[in-house]
Design a protein around this nucleic acid. Structure first.
Lengths: 257, 257
DNA sequence: GTCGGCAGGTTGTCATGACATTCTGAGCAA
DNA sequence: TTGCTCAGAATGTCATGACAACCTGCCGAC
């Protein structure tokens, strides 16, 4: 009788599914990581399947072991792979839903094909309100660009977005804001965002908010205030947003360690 | 006249502030990373200060460059350091507030000295409700441990916590739950949690919830449902929590890329 | 039959060396 | 004075080699 090897869902020909272009400027480890992520997300590498050991994989792909390890480590950090010393490397059991990243609401809606639309309610340079000044770590009395927008999804009002940016940070066009998300506009201006602090809470809608959002007064709203920083740690944006709780919720993935 | 070197807040004797113990089982890169994190958090390495280059640092500490890079990379991932190719490595401008991790509310309150207290309302094995079954990816009809708790902070009711765990996952003592947080109890049982999916929303309080939490009916509540997975990707816990919006908000730090 | 030790396999850590890429600033030329 | 070029310096990438720590399963001893 033939005993089937337990848990052996191994993929022998992983190397055949990955092509490496050594003339590309894209780093080798990144090419491998990206390709492996595609394979995992397309279920060609199903959850639970075991990879060959690092040395064999590196050998098959014509890479060194550190490079292969770097690729695998990248995916382990993302939670797509699980490594166990003395055992091996497996594809993690579940598909990871995309992490809530430093994206704007607009990008999220756009990806979800929810037909985002934006109405710019205010767009002006003003002396910074104390809350914005404090969040952006600016000297008292500094001027800020104040933006207020009403965001729709599928022609239904969804959120009121108030944002404050240091005046003169970037060339921002009011028209661009009506067509794209703030974060996309910032990125197009060369502003990078690396870290953000968020606070998520809830409260009742004021009369004005209820009117804008098509809710009754006192309806529960989800609130999110966020300060975003560039790679050097300088604050570039402070936002104070309210969402219709009946139409919106935040989804996020936490990684431990 | 002496021209001061621009931006040179360099710390020469970094090596003198770091001691490595080669006989320790703790990896060298980790010893270095941990010590550097201490120095940054204690402002002995102030924000903006520049580190020596990797090769010099490695040399000063008697390490190889890859090891030194691994230590620095660790802190870059945490957002404590900023690396720029061709330029150097600097301490990031702002102090990073602690990331919302896979901690329970109890741990957070305990750390904040808010005197958490727990009242266990329900503790029973039941046939799994559909929502819990789906979240935990269990076969229909499976039994689950159902826990319902009322959490206080400083003798003020704060949240109603409903949790579901696969039956028989761990030895859980009702008494332990009254004294510690669920996550601490799970960790003590050897259950590890690596990834969690969370959804945060808001809604009005039901009559029962309002009574438990000392709010009026219709008061805004913050809701959080979470499914936590162990390193292998198996669901270990599903929680459905409601918080008094007037007393609680979520704070989290997002890192991009 | 059960327990414990041992061997083999796999990932974790660390060192050394080399070259590529990128940024900054000094110095030269217009 | 202004703009361009280039050298220096720093990080980014990759290769090779070696040993350590850990897990699993086999196999022998009791």
């Amino acid at each position: 009788m033939i005993i089937s090897v337990p848990h052996n869902d191994g993929v022998d020909g992983l190397a055949q599914l990955i092509r490496i272009d050594r003339s590309s400027p894209v780093p080798l480890y990144y090419q491998v990581a990206q390709r492996m992520q595609e394979l995992i997300e397309s279920a060609q590498l199903p959850p639970g399947s075991r990879l060959d050991n690092e040395i064999a994989l590196a050998d098959q792909l014509g890479l060194s072991r550190p490079t292969m390890r770097q690729a695998i480590g990248h995916l382990v950090d993302k939670g797509l792979l699980v490594r166990k010393r003395g055992v091996g490397t497996q594809v993690a059991q579940r598909r990871v839903s995309r992490q809530v990243e430093l994206t704007s609401l607009y990008d999220d809606l756009d990806r979800a094909r929810r037909r985002p639309r934006t109405e710019v309610l205010a767009f002006e340079v003003i002396p910074g309100p104390p809350a914005a000044i404090a969040a952006l770590h600016l000297p008292t009395g500094s001027e800020v660009l104040h933006i207020e927008r009403l965001r729709y999804a599928e022609d239904e009002p969804l959120a009121v977005l108030r944002n404050y940016l240091p005046a003169g940070l970037a060339e921002i066009d009011r028209q661009a804001l009506a067509e794209r998300g703030l974060y996309q506009v910032l990125r197009d201006s060369g502003i990078q965002m690396r870290i953000a602090d968020q606070t998520i809470g809830a409260r009742k809608a004021s009369a004005a908010e209820a009117r804008l959002l098509g809710e009754v007064r006192g309806a529960p709203l989800l609130t999110m205030s966020r300060t975003a920083y560039d790679p050097a740690g300088h604050a570039v944006e402070y936002g104070d947003h309210v969402y219709r709780a009946s139409h919106y919720s935040f989804e996020l993935t936490l990684l431990s360690r």
